[in-house]
């Protein structure tokens, strides 16, 4: 473990908590893409299949359970409890356009052709594009609540910090994983225009408005 990866995990945990708090305290999931949340739940499910078979550390197991529980709790809040506030009309991204290519690529480019490894690779490719429905929804509505932009900033920062972690691990222990690293770069690049808007607008107290 290094401070970059710990920082990344904490940013990820913060994002998940911000989202749950936003939905719970405002009793509304307006502006949140349920489709992205479905992709995140799918990502954690495919990635943590070895939760009970491959013990790494208490921290690792606890975080996996927290991520899985939070992902499914968010789906419950969005599609059951506060279903009436879910904005179907603006959350229209076709999930099959993301799931099928990620699954196909995972069967072709992976570290090892085994169930666990292919599912892990699928989760890596899927996570890279999982935020697209959310970013698409923000571009369609043209704006986002500030709490939602804090959520996106924390979520985007998590994988950016993981990239720093991979660079650090390459130079400190010669470790590298081209699949996770390249997918992580794609994932982080998708946030770039949002990061720009967040830093130039939201941090100055303005609302996040996308140029129409």
């Amino acid at each position: 473990m290094n401070i970059f990866r710990l920082g990344g995990d904490l940013a990820h945990l913060l994002a998940i908590i911000i989202l749950l708090l936003k939905i719970w305290t405002t009793r509304s999931c307006a502006g949140i893409s349920g489709k992205s949340q479905i992709l995140f739940a799918l990502t954690f499910t495919a990635r943590y299949l070895d939760l009970f078979t491959n013990f790494v550390s208490v921290y690792n197991s606890v975080m996996k359970v927290v991520y899985l529980a939070a992902a499914y709790a968010t789906l419950y809040l969005m599609y059951v409890k506060f279903k009436a506030t879910y904005d179907h009309n603006h959350d229209t991204f076709r999930l099959e356009f993301l799931i099928l290519p990620a699954a196909g690529l995972a069967l072709i480019i992976n570290h090892e052709f085994s169930i666990i490894e292919v599912m892990w690779t699928f989760s890596i490719y899927l996570e890279a594009v999982a935020i697209l429905p959310q970013l698409f929804m923000v571009s369609k509505t043209g704006e986002a609540e500030s709490i939602t932009s804090h959520y996106l900033f924390a979520l985007g920062s998590y994988r950016a910090l993981y990239i720093v972690n991979w660079v650090y691990r390459y130079y400190s222990e010669g470790f590298y994983d081209m699949i996770a690293t390249l997918a992580g770069v794609v994932q982080t690049v998708l946030y770039c225009d949002f990061f720009y808007l967040y830093i130039t607008k939201v941090l100055k107290g303005k609302k996040l408005q996308l140029p129409a």
């Binding site: 473990m1 990866r5 995990d9 990820h12 491959n54 790494v56 550390s57 690792n60 975080m63 996996k64 991520y67 480019i109 570290h111 490894e117 892990w120 993981y162 691990r169 470790f175 590298y176 994983d177 081209m178 699949i179 996770a180 690293t181």
Partner: peptide, 10 residues
């Protein structure tokens, strides 16, 4: 050449 998966990462 693709390296290998980090089993300790989330």
């Amino acid at each position: 050449e693709l390296g290998f998966r980090a089993k300790d990462e989330l």
